[in-house]
Design a protein around this nucleic acid. Structure first.
Lengths: 184, 184
DNA sequence: CCATATAGTTAGATAATCTAATTATAGAGG
DNA sequence: CCTCTATAATTAGATTATCTAACTATATGG
């Protein structure tokens, strides 16, 4: 959600950076007694980081005129390509959104000729969604940037630190996916 | 972005969960030679986790009929309250969005009487934005849930692991904020 | 063969963003 | 003191990503 575009003049006025301290003071006054302060502090940090991470990714993909969500869908189609019949319903279930929302995404991608819809001959209520050669070409063009953007997120850390972080994030993510009922 | 609401029947058809392996295979084929595979893998995981973390937070705040973005703004006003003059321009700069977008957010919050606008007497082009007693009341009502939601994100980990994670996330976040030119 | 369930779409809404244009005010230079 | 330009905020109009509810077409079980 955070984005800063160049032109359009910004205010001279600017708010001083508070850092995390005022948040922690507020937490002391307002958190339930059953809430662990250290955990909440870490969770807050994780949320801020999550926000920033998604901003970086959208910023990196912006030059390709595609958002992370749409690219994610094309990647899904790429990875399942040829393996199973992909329907809008299945996509909706996987992405955790409504079928109507998938229709909108597919309309957008189809208009650019990156995906194709084909009526299933077995059950004519169903639509088979597939990525087109042009879609595959786009994905191929974007992927090197995508991977380097992923990698740049953690370039700050030493190899050993990355191994430690990976173990921790895997566990956190598994727990959260269980909670949300999603998963890739 | 991922949300699953109850009613509305979902497809029987469902895509098998692929896990991370096909992503890594694809990475081997499509990443630039200068991209470190382990880093990219970790970054991918960080992005997925970021997405899930934001979903959890919005899900936890949903019962209060406020989104994370709007709550974030109210929190900003709370923390700066009385300290400095807060203008729409300053908010736009801090949140990394345009002034026009801030106008829309403020309209929404003002309609609910959670913030107030007052023309500055020093420079009558400027608006002083402040949180109202009702706004403060809302924030107080939401904060216990907010902190417990933060804390729940990392409840999976042991205290020692949390300390390790905190050190790593602080460094990652500092680097990313520098890159995006944002910060709290 | 009909009732009901399912797949997908359409219509219409909301949220969060954007750009470009507009209005009002401030301030600087002649 | 007047005018020009810069700045603050808003408005108008657009896009993206979501939602719910209603609709259409098809399948299937009794």
């Amino acid at each position: 959600m955070v984005r800063k575009n160049s032109h359009d003049h910004l205010a001279d006025q600017s708010l001083p950076k508070l850092g995390v301290t005022p948040y922690l003071e507020l937490m002391d006054k307002t958190a339930s007694s059953s809430t662990d302060r250290h955990s909440a502090h870490l969770g807050l940090l994780l949320m801020w980081l999550g926000d920033n991470v998604l901003d970086v990714m959208d910023l990196e993909l912006a030059p390709f005129n595609i958002t992370e969500s749409k690219f994610d869908l094309l990647l899904l189609l790429t990875l399942h390509d040829g393996r199973e019949l992909i329907t809008p319903s299945a996509i909706a279930e996987r992405l955790g959104i409504r079928r109507a929302s998938v229709t909108a995404l597919l309309d957008w991608l189809e208009k650019r000729n990156w995906i194709a819809r084909e009526q299933s001959s077995l059950d004519r209520r169903m639509i088979h969604v597939s990525i087109t050669p042009e879609g595959r070409e786009l994905v191929e063009g974007v992927l090197p940037t995508f991977w380097s953007a992923c990698s740049s997120l953690v370039s700050e850390l030493e190899p050993e630190e990355r191994r430690v972080l990976e173990k921790l994030l895997l566990r956190l993510n598994a727990a959260i996916e269980r909670r949300l009922g999603v998963g890739r």
